[in-house]
Simulated scan of single mutants.
Amino acid sequence: MWGEELYVAGAGGAGREALDIALACGRTVAAFLDDFRAGEKVRGLRVLPPSEAPAGAGYVVAIADASVRERLAARLDGLGLIPDELVHPRATIGPETTLGPGFLAHAGALVSSGVIAGVHCQVHYNATVGHDCVLADRVTVLPGANVAGAVRIGTGVLVGSGAVVLQGRSVGAGAVVGAGAVVTSDVPPGVVVVGSPARPR
């Protein structure tokens, strides 16, 4: 556990899910941080502009879009907040696995042994990340996706719901693996792949 005071950046659906994880962990969320919804209340919590969060508090960015996550995290870091992590009690994290600051794991997520994850990665409901995978910064693995062992996933990659990335493959930075796709060969950076086997869209 990092800081005692925790803020969730993003007051949309992903933010509410992050609140659920925090509550399951026994953590207290002080408020949501969201410029667009500042002044509202969501699930009984205030929504503040990020500039009102106190320096030294912990935060998680609960937004699926990796580029938005990058910008908001940089802003919060600049304000003196500290990236925290939220791992649901019903998630499984294997031994000898390193989770970067800002990591978010939903219920049913499994991150196997020997995994290295960069900053602000997310593994959603019932998604799996196999042994010895390397996830660069801001990787998002959506519900039900299966990333097999020894896969390398580049910065900002989105692995869609129900997708499969086979053993030993690599997915380049900024690529998108579409929902239900089966990745049987390496995916170049910035490419969107769909289908089984996955091919560029």
Rank of each mutant, 00 (worst) to 15 (best):
L33F: 00
T98S: 15
Y59G: 00
E52V: 02
R71K: 12
V183T: 09
G114L: 05
V191M: 13
R27S: 01
Q167T: 14
I82N: 07
G195H: 03
A127W: 10
P54T: 03
H124Q: 15
A74L: 13
V192K: 10
V159R: 01
L72N: 00
V115S: 00
G44K: 05
L142T: 08
E5V: 12
V139Y: 00
A109D: 07
P143R: 04
V115D: 09
L23I: 11
A31K: 01
L33E: 04
A181P: 05
P89M: 11
R169Q: 07
R90I: 04
L19K: 01
H120P: 03
A181V: 03
G12T: 06
P101N: 05
G80Y: 10
G144E: 01
A175D: 02
C25Q: 06
L33A: 03
L76N: 02
A74D: 11
G174M: 10
G180V: 09
F36W: 05
I21L: 14
A55L: 10
S67A: 12
P197S: 10
G10T: 01
G190V: 12
P49K: 08
A24P: 06
V139T: 01
V139L: 01
A105R: 02
G154V: 04
D34I: 08
T184G: 06
D137I: 09
G108W: 04
S113I: 11
V129H: 04
V61N: 04
V151G: 14
G10C: 00
G130D: 03
R37K: 14
F36R: 13
